[in-house]
Nucleic acid binder design. Structure first.
Length: 747
RNA sequence: GGAUCCUUAGCUCAAUGGCUAGAGCAUUCGCUUGACGUGCGAAGGGUUGGAGGUUCGAGUCCUCCAGGGUCCACCA
């Protein structure tokens, strides 16, 4: 054994040994209890960052339960990351002077597909370098044909259950990225703007308020008045009480609108009267629904003013239109005043531009019934949440979700399997949207509504979270399909009927039933509403069971000053670089040691160095024992009741206690404390105290003392293995002359 | 406005109501000790943000105050 542990020398070989000998492969084993985790699928296209390295908690659990004698499955996967990936790809195109509009849908999809596949191996190998005990034979991709089939099936079942509907609503739309977003993806930022007080003249000369022939309304977005269809006041507001129902004239467009009363209006804000633009403001949209107001869209999906805004404004960008509107109003003396105003504005989380509210027909999921069911399971602890405080947060979300817009105007994703009957549109037979749409798992040969029209498939794809929200059951169902010898092809769907039959049969499949519900879902707390909540809702809907029994949430990794890591700040720690320098074990320990589960942590290279030192210590304890074992002239006894023999007894006792506490902590998800226990014991008790005290005995070849020391050390090696798999395996295999793996052992 | 986390050594953080409040890094001194200098031995560094309370016992539980972070909501 070398005096220093050299991770680079061992790690790759050891991982190949594990993978090559199927140590990570799971099968049904009726004699064992199952323990399963589905890896949160990283973006197939991107390098791993420290957030992914935090999945080390999963590896710790997987390896721990393997050593506990469970049949463990840790299923890896990759996410196509729809919009995220397309965004990156479009940047590449831009560098080449191209844009997505230079290609048709199929070309673009194929190009992105190749782009992603080229990088997927890279991402997967990075997971290997972290030492993760993933069952690679069962790896999945969110765009695998059989995953897509499950996603289609979920959509169809939701559609049939009336839980997915198509509606024209205001959606969060980024006119720069060209797609809509769910509410969760909009980032609100404080912004300094102006509050304009604009005069709306009464139509009738008899109407007035305090002898003025107008009402002022306050707005931050004067350009939207081009689409106003009412002015609203609070019904309890005495100032306006007598004016409700009267008519005003919207400036510039000279449209006659009524004064309406709605409780949503705050009398204390602005003038107490508010302009209502149903097409471009969420609150106004809601008012319009209550009052049956008409909707006039004046801003288009490319961020320019439409024909409906009037000839003068048509084609202008929003900001230009705003300036022009204000200018015109000033000319007409219709601006009462302009205040500085600080308010919060929604921005695109990706490109940072202002999000517009635009009316668009989209698919929505009716959340309420799904959330109610999920809530019940969480309240009754059919799903346990660790740390506990996140239970409350999850429940808050389940109470506050709005209907979920799952349509995205992006090519890279799972195209929505909904088809529109064309004859219905032509004949205008049905005003109800749902009646002109049908959902089909396979490309239909004829229109399922009228039977003969040239039906059209929806151009949109699903929100990535819609498919990843099904990940636990979709992956296991897909494994079931593979298990019954289904030959899958990655992109092209062959023999559709056979496949659909298999999908409906999948829940009778043993493999699925053995591992589902999964044991733990482990991920960062930042995606609790995006992902965890949706997995629970969709999992319950599709399978009738919770998708996982426990949720374990970890915190975010920040730099050593507690700042968020970002490329622009230049404070990013690259996990692969750290592995190159200090080994995977050191990085893994640094992410877990002395960190409270669920709390954010600051990570510095110094901490990784410290952990590397501990690993070297463990290596050297092993080396010491290994070397003293070679000593000849071993004698079997020392004098009874001697001080030495008391120390040996003490060591045995301390070890028994340590192990007991370790097992308890690990079962309670208190991994960091378990690690501290091992750290302290190995370094400050075993090495500093016992070995130093008994050094002479060992060197004199005292068999009894050596045996105890060896047992205690090897026991600790097994306990430490979930945290530092490489060094423990390396020592073990040297110790046993490469004859066995530490993974064959049990506690 | 709501929720939540945090405030402990110079820095970053641990600590299951219970022994002298610990670790990593940093600092000082001494050791070329036959496992390890990625080490060993020692030292310095703390009124655990503040004020009350519960308790035999509080860094930990409760109340209030101050400061910081994060998430969410939001009035045009």
């Amino acid at each position: 054994m070398e005096p220093k542990y050299q991770p680079n020398f061992f790690e790759e070989k050891i991982y190949q040994f594990w993978e090559g000998n199927n140590y990570f492969h799971a099968e049904i084993n009726k004699e064992k209890k199952p323990f399963s985790i589905i890896l949160p699928p990283p973006n197939a296209n991107a390098d791993l960052h420290l957030g992914h390295a935090m999945y080390v908690y999963e590896d710790i659990m997987i390896r721990f339960y393997k050593l506990m004698g469970f049949e463990v499955l840790w299923l890896p996967g990759a996410d196509h990351a729809g919009f995220e990936t397309q965004y990156v790809f479009e940047k590449h195109l831009k560098e080449k002077g191209k844009s997505r509009f230079d290609y048709n849908r199929e070309e673009l999809y194929q190009m992105i597909f190749e782009f992603v596949m080229k990088n997927r191996d890279n991402m997967e190998n990075q997971l290997r370098r972290l030492g993760f005990a993933l069952d690679w034979q069962r790896k999945k991709f969110t765009l695998d044909a059989d995953i897509i089939q499950v996603v289609y099936d979920t959509f169809k079942k939701l559609f049939e259950a009336g839980l997915v509907y198509r509606a024209k609503r205001l959606v969060n739309f980024c006119t720069f990225c060209g797609t809509s977003f769910s509410d969760l993806e909009v980032v609100y930022k404080e912004k300094l703007g102006k509050l304009y007080y604009i005069k709306y003249l009464f139509k009738s000369k008899n109407d007035n308020i305090k002898n003025k022939n107008y009402i002022s309304v306050a707005t931050t977005r004067p350009e939207t008045l081009l689409g106003d269809t009412a002015v609203a006041v609070n019904p309890k507001d005495k100032r306006f009480k007598n004016l409700i129902g009267r008519s005003l004239i919207v400036p510039l467009v000279n449209r006659e609108v009524k004064i309406i009363a709605d409780l949503v209006v705050d009398p204390k804000f602005g003038t107490g009267a508010v302009k209502v633009t149903p097409a471009h403001d969420q609150t106004d949209w809601e008012i319009s629904q209550r009052h049956n107001l008409s909707l006039i869209q004046v801003i288009d999906f490319d961020g320019r003013m439409m024909k409906e805004a009037g000839e003068e404004f048509q084609g202008l960008f929003i900001n230009q239109a705003r300036e022009k509107v204000v200018e015109k109003l000033k000319e007409l003396n219709l601006i009462e005043k302009i205040d500085d105003y600080k308010h919060r504005v929604g921005h695109c989380y990706k490109c940072g531009q202002v999000i517009e509210f635009l009316p668009k027909e989209q698919w929505f999921i009716k959340i309420k019934p799904l959330a109610e069911r999920a809530k019940e399971k969480v309240v009754k602890e059919k799903i346990k949440i660790y740390p506990k405080r996140f239970k409350k947060i999850l429940l808050w979300w389940l109470d506050h979700f709005q209907d979920w817009n799952i349509s995205r105007q992006v090519v890279w994703g799972i195209r929505i399997p909904a088809y529109k009957c064309q004859s219905k549109i032509k004949n205008q037979k049905s005003k109800i949207e749902k009646e002109s749409w049908f959902v089909s798992l396979e490309k239909p040969k004829k229109c399922l509504i009228c039977g003969n029209c040239d039906f059209k498939q929806d151009e949109d794809t699903f929100d990535t979270w819609f498919s990843s929200g099904q990940w636990p059951f979709a992956t296991l169902a897909s494994c079931s399909i593979s298990n019954i010898k289904y030959q899958k092809s990655k992109t092209h769907i062959k023999n559709q009927k056979e496949k659909n039959n298999l999908i409906t049969k999948q829940f009778n499949n043993e493999f699925f039933n053995y591992f589902y519900p999964t044991s733990v879902m482990e991920t960062g707390y930042d995606i609790l509403p995006w992902w965890v909540a949706r997995m629970i809702m969709l999992g319950l809907f599709y399978t009738g069971k919770v998708p996982f029994k426990n949720v374990f949430l970890h915190g975010l990794v920040k730099d050593k000053f507690g700042q968020k890591m970002s490329k622009s700040k230049g404070n990013v720690i690259n996990p692969m670089e750290m592995i190159d320098k200090y080994g995977a074990d050191a990085l893994r320990l640094a992410l877990v040691y002395q960190v409270k589960e669920g709390n954010d942590q600051s990570l510095s290279e110094g901490k990784i160095v410290g952990m590397r030192n501990f690993i070297n210590k463990v290596w050297n304890i092993g080396r010491f024992i290994y070397l003293t074992k070679q000593i000849k002239n071993q004698k079997s006894e020392i004098r009874n009741n001697s001080l030495k023999s008391i120390i040996i007894k003490k060591l045995k006792k301390e070890y028994v206690n340590e192990k007991k506490r370790y097992l308890k902590l690990m079962k309670d998800f208190k991994f960091s404390l378990a690690l501290s226990l091992l750290y302290k014991f190995l370094w400050h008790r075993l090495a500093d105290f016992y070995i130093e005290r008994l050094k002479e005995e060992f060197k004199n070849g005292n068999i009894k003392a050596s045996k105890v020391l060896e047992d205690v050390f090897l026991g600790n090696l097994i306990m430490l293995h979930p945290f530092t798999p490489f060094v423990t395996e390396a020592i073990w295999r040297i110790y046993y002359n490469k004859k066995e793996s530490i993974l064959d052992k049990k506690f």
